[in-house]
């Protein structure tokens, strides 16, 4: 799966999560910071991890919120897992 496809799937996941955040999600890029730009809380981080596991059929190891600063970090992780 290409990085652009992974990002588009991530956008879909995030769009479903928060109605108020639609514009930020549509405009997000690999450089978008999860907390500062997308307003992530510990619960949205958890939501993202669970939804990614369902959507991509992968299992996250014991990674913490601090391991993902930007959306690009998340894409890196998914890419490595899918390899």
């Amino acid at each position: 799966m290409k990085r652009t496809e992974i990002i588009e799937k991530l956008r879909e996941i995030l769009r479903a999560a928060d109605d108020r955040n639609q514009d930020a999600v549509s405009a997000c890029t690999e450089q978008s910071r999860l907390v500062a730009d997308l307003g992530f809380s510990s619960v949205s981080m958890l939501y993202m991890v669970i939804a990614i596991e369902e959507e991509f059929g992968i299992r996250f190891e014991n990674v913490g919120a601090a391991d993902f600063q930007t959306l690009g970090d998340v894409v890196d992780y998914i890419e490595a897992k899918l390899r």
Partner: peptide, 8 residues
């Protein structure tokens, strides 16, 4: 709130 209305 950030520019999109999310609590920060």
């Amino acid at each position: 709130e950030n520019e999109f209305g999310a609590q920060i």
